[in-house]
Amino acid sequence: MQLKESFAGTLESGDIHVRLMPSPTPGLTIHLESSVACQFGDQIRRVIAETLAELGIDSAEVNATDKGALDCTIRARVTAAAVRATGKDVWAD
């Protein structure tokens, strides 16, 4: 799927800022910075990957800066970034 660079979210406490970019190599690369990396880093990566997979994106570079967002917030921000990156409005379908 063609991606154009896009982002969603903020750097507010409880939110996550997700930047989605086309990847030069196949597969998903996730760079995560998180205030709760120790306790929740793996869980956050998994939610990002699962959300993108559900949207049919299997190749992308993700830069995420997390400020303690809950899973529902992470899914919403990743989805919003993906909609902007693909131009495909998943909410409209």
């Binding site: 709760v36 120790c38 306790q39 929740f40 880093g41 793996d42 869980q43 809950l70 899973d71």
Partner: peptide
């Protein structure tokens, strides 16, 4: 139930 189970601290 909201946050999942945190990993142990290092």
């Amino acid at each position: 139930s909201i946050i999942g189970t945190p990993a142990a601290l290092p």
